[in-house]
């Protein structure tokens, strides 16, 4: 009975979630872009000449129907990977994206082995 109730709630929960559609969010994109002429600020947080220009361009591209990824790719092509706060997954950034999960898994394995050794004794 109880499990049924839980399953019911979970399904209810996700139905609500699925009902929301997500559009391309300009603010999210702007927050993921580095303001190249500022000290460690995102484009969204800056009001510099450069940031103002990027804001206009990003909004234009969204209106043109470009996807988030296309916008990032366009800017990376023009300014290099330095401009995005989320490094794209490629040869250079491979270690950055993979290593944390590797560490997580190996940590789990170490703990597991630890306990197993004990159970055998």
């Amino acid at each position: 009975m109880k499990t049924k109730v839980i399953i019911f709630f979970i399904i209810l929960n996700f139905n609500v979630v699925n009902a929301i559609t997500f559009s391309v969010d300009s603010n999210k994109i702007l927050k993921n872009l580095r303001c190249l002429i500022c000290q460690g600020q995102s484009v969204a947080d800056s009001n510099s000449e450069f940031a103002q220009t990027i804001k206009i361009v990003v909004k234009d591209q969204i209106n043109d129907g470009k996807s988030e990824k296309e916008i990032y790719d366009f800017l990376i092509e023009k300014y290099g990977e330095w401009i995005v706060y989320k490094p794209p997954l490629n040869k250079v950034n491979f270690v950055l994206w993979i290593f944390p999960y590797l560490a997580l898994i190996s940590g789990g394995v170490i703990i597991f082995l630890f306990l197993k050794k004990r159970d055998n004794h």
Binding site: L36, I37, E49, F50, Q52, T53, I54, I56, V57, D60, L75, K78, Y79
Partner: peptide
């Protein structure tokens, strides 16, 4: 006028 085209050329200042 709005600086939009500068981005196409990778200008930042």
């Amino acid at each position: 006028e709005l600086g939009k085209h500068s981005i196409n050329f990778g200008i930042y200042g």
